[in-house]
Design a protein around this nucleic acid. Sequence first.
DNA 1: GCAAATTCATTCGTATGCAAATGATATCAA
DNA 2: TTGATATCATTTGCATACGAATGAATTTGC
Lengths: 153, 153
Amino acid sequence: MSGEDNLLRLVEAEEPDENNYHLQDQVGFILRKAHQRHVSIFAAHIGDLTPPQFAALAKLYDIGETSQNQLGTLIAMDAATVKGVIDRLKARGLVELSKHEVDKRRLLVNLTPEGREAIERLIPLARSITEETLAPLTAKEAATFLRLLAKLA
Amino acid sequence: MSGEDNLLRLVEAEEPDENNYHLQDQVGFILRKAHQRHVSIFAAHIGDLTPPQFAALAKLYDIGETSQNQLGTLIAMDAATVKGVIDRLKARGLVELSKHEVDKRRLLVNLTPEGREAIERLIPLARSITEETLAPLTAKEAATFLRLLAKLA
DNA sequence: GCAAATTCATTCGTATGCAAATGATATCAA
DNA sequence: TTGATATCATTTGCATACGAATGAATTTGC
């Protein structure tokens, strides 16, 4: 029956099933899809800010004023990407920029009062986003997943 | 000691540690970093093709000719994104386009001989990429991780 | 103390990724 | 049959993401 059909198919294909490549089983492909799903959940909860923009605000709220480059390192963005993100946050009045007094290469970034207010308002929503993203897993599975995911990141 | 310092810090902050928001512990942030790492590994092994371009070729190799829209569904890309990917693969001679005889809305996509040759050459490299991406995990952890990741994607 | 190397930031080019609007075609339903 | 819907593809606009090149400022090494 099914087994014979599979055997026949494999013989016809002249290669065992293990040698076939299934895109949908590859970690990179699934990782990309999981990330897409998260971004979609994020957008449904926080429509007027992207995850990278939120990350920048949350990190500034956590550590206070820092250089654009240092901020990029902390939120895993290269220099070109972080510049664009900060430019857009600045245009919306959520962060302000200033020059480092000593090291003239550095551009300091800090939250404005509006930015602080925004991030304080958004953090509860971010908790919901995390919760919804992990909703397909049990609490135990979610803990395991986060532990293993952190190892890969 | 350390315990007293922590207590003091929490009292000063006037909130328990559980109420703090740590960006680096959020699933979305780690997911984004893990995806970035995978893309970087991919680029180190396959420099002249991106993961989405590879996904398109691999899926066409798997299922044969299909419409651009259907291909997008199978590789998790919206219509606008898949168009750009296919345009670039076409410009490189790896896929060819044709009109559907019956349904004039549809644009059929198929591998060229060069595209077939390319994907056959690249699949072994893709296996290495998967392996390297999962390298921080044991075999058992990797199996668990893929199972849980699939639930989220 | 000075030349070399490094760091910080910017700019350019290319490639996803998605929302929204549009046009062409096909299907459904009254 | 025809009018309303739905599907397929394209285009535009915006937002990451990163490599490479550039320039300014700092640090290192000798």
